[in-house]
Design a protein around this nucleic acid. Structure first.
Lengths: 356, 356
DNA sequence: TTGAAAGCGCTAACAT
DNA sequence: ATGTTAGCGCTTTCAA
């Protein structure tokens, strides 16, 4: 006794409307309905029209689970992130969303909240056909499962992951170059003692930025002073703390480069608390250009990463791998751009040009 | 000619390991394997053991799509949010995650990015068995689909949604009471001119906070001055702008209540830019107690919402509705708590006690 | 306790 | 162009 469409004795609807009901209503076979749903050829305009009307009338909505089971594709993309609280993530996700949306893909979110081991567990789960592909933003433990992903030919793209040497599908930006631009700019303003607050050093992007700093100083014949470098963690409080340290130096920096905007905000805070005027007494430069950067005071000069575009590129690349899993590994590197706002100017006292 | 398990002529594995393979390996029927997977009774310890071993050995992972199709439950919960960039969201999501994780549920994320109409579209989609339940944080357009959800008995819980009067499953906090506490505190410090920056007024929580402000003033016999109220939008730049306005008043406030921490940070910025010392020249109080509140300088006095607990409660309530869809509508209201830190003190000049 | 068998709603190959 | 049929991997009766 099948819980059958149509025949519901009592007043209440017993089940959701299926492809079957639509077929009934339109007076065609349910294969035809399937064809219409999937926009296949070989359906007469007239029947297509009838099916469409029946669908609308019945309020048919496809059961994704069933489509997935039958067709082997879930139209879901897994997204693995550490945490969500920064605009950095939000901007990237916006880009991902946008791209996936046009292709009618959904996003499954897994936040590890810094529980490193969660990453692998989630990856295993997603891989099992729950998702068609996997996007990872700033993964911490990628090495643990990257090989599995590759072997299983499970489509995946990493965002902002730089594994020196490894050939992994990824989207990143010109971290090295971007930092060079920033430091060069500071140098051109006359700064010679430039403080540097790193990001979390386990990330390749953080290392690249530090390297950019060192290389630029060297290029310009400015000696590298290890005292001017503090290790940060990409969080605002750390920027605050590190800059305290930097500003307490016997010979403090006249400018500080923070490896992301959030830490730059911390620097601003510390500077202001010491009664320094910005940017007269201290130039500050960040990295990312999150929306907030344009809204602090003074507005923050920073190295812009095209976050939204990173998300879009990653999603597009992933979609490509989903369509053809054997496509060659691509490593997309998007250009950064120095956005000059108000937070930097020439150094006050020991100015190179000795003015004032 | 079925693409059959086991019999893969060539070297390569043709398919993922299924319940079928496990049954083969363990020498039992696949129904038994299903029983083991679902922790059902009526399986001899010995066979259970064998199945378990086979599963481990083969690295079996269930296909959630199939389980869902067959069993009618997807073990997925949909989460609808506007945007992600604030700790507010992250904290709540952390709580949701935690609870769902223990019950082995996954989270499907839909970010509307302020595109109001997206909400309804997503709700329809999720509803169609893609998810077992739906969680909405601060929905903007809830009225549009709440009735449908109710009629279909689709499990859903709204977070921080206050529809005056409507009986909707939800989790919120004592917005009114929390604001009263904050204003009372400011009053007790001697403040009489207290600026108020509202949240987005379309949200019930924002309205409740404003009401709390008005009620408290009235209770204490302090006349309400409309000039002291500015409409905000829960974003930092707005806090900055609104406080500029407030501080430019002929008779500026000696304290400002911002309807969330983010806007309070904006107030701090504006105050500092004007050369005001905090908290001597201006007391500032926020709402939320996002992690950052403890890390700014001065540390922010604020009305704490138990964000993570809100997430947990909402998830728990949703799980309950999933288990029994006809359970009575519950509206959970969690208590807020005034967290006193450094950003408030008595007013300087026109002090009540006339000291200094 | 265990196995056999019938679907869940759909896609895709195969007929017609 | 359209219909028929065989599964996708699993849960769940129903027998045994």
């Amino acid at each position: 006794m099948k819980k059958n469409p149509g025949s519901n004795g009592a007043g209440q609807r017993t089940h959701d409307v299926t492809i079957f009901d639509v077929a009934d209503e339109a007076g065609v076979s349910y294969a035809t309905v399937s064809r219409v749903i999937n926009n296949k050829d070989h359906v007469s305009p007239e029947k297509r029209e009838r099916v469409l009307r029946a669908m609308a009338q019945l309020g048919y909505v496809a059961n994704e689970q069933a489509r997935s089971l039958a067709g082997g594709t879930s139209r879901v993309v897994g997204l693995l992130v550490d945490y969500l609280s920064t605009s950095y993530m939000d901007e990237i996700i916006r880009g991902i969303d946008e791209t996936l949306d046009t292709e009618d893909y959904d996003l499954m979110l897994y936040t590890t909240h810094r529980r490193k081991t969660k990453e692998s567990a989630y990856v295993t789960k997603l891989t099992r056909k729950l998702a068609d592909g996997l996007l990872l933003i700033l993964p911490r433990n990628a090495a643990a499962y990257l090989e599995t992903l590759r072997q299983r030919q499970f489509p995946h793209v990493l965002i902002d992951y730089l594994s020196d040497g490894q050939n992994v599908p990824s989207v990143s930006t010109t971290n090295f170059r971007g930092t060079c631009d920033a430091i060069t700019y500071l140098l051109s303003l006359g700064h010679r003692r430039i403080g540097f607050i790193t990001g979390t050093m386990e990330f390749g992007c953080a290392r690249d930025r530090l390297n950019g700093y060192k290389a630029t100083l060297k290029d310009h014949g400015v000696p590298f002073d290890p005292q001017l470098v503090c290790e940060g963690d990409f969080q605002q409080p750390c920027g605050y703390l590190d800059s305290q340290k930097l500003l307490s130096l016997p010979e403090p920096p006249t400018a500080i480069f923070a490896s992301n905007d959030l830490m730059a905000f911390g620097v601003m805070e510390a500077a202001r608390e010491r009664g320094l005027h910005l940017p007269e007494d201290l130039s500050i430069i960040g990295f990312d250009d999150i929306p907030q950067a344009a809204h602090v005071h003074p507005t923050l000069t920073t190295v812009r990463q095209p976050l939204e575009e990173m998300g879009r590129s990653a999603a597009r690349l992933l979609l490509k791998y989903i369509a053809q899993p054997t496509a060659a590994v691509e490593r997309i590197e998007l250009p950064t751009e120095l956005i000059i706002r108000e937070s930097c100017q020439g150094p006050r006292a020991r100015s190179i040009n000795g003015s004032q």
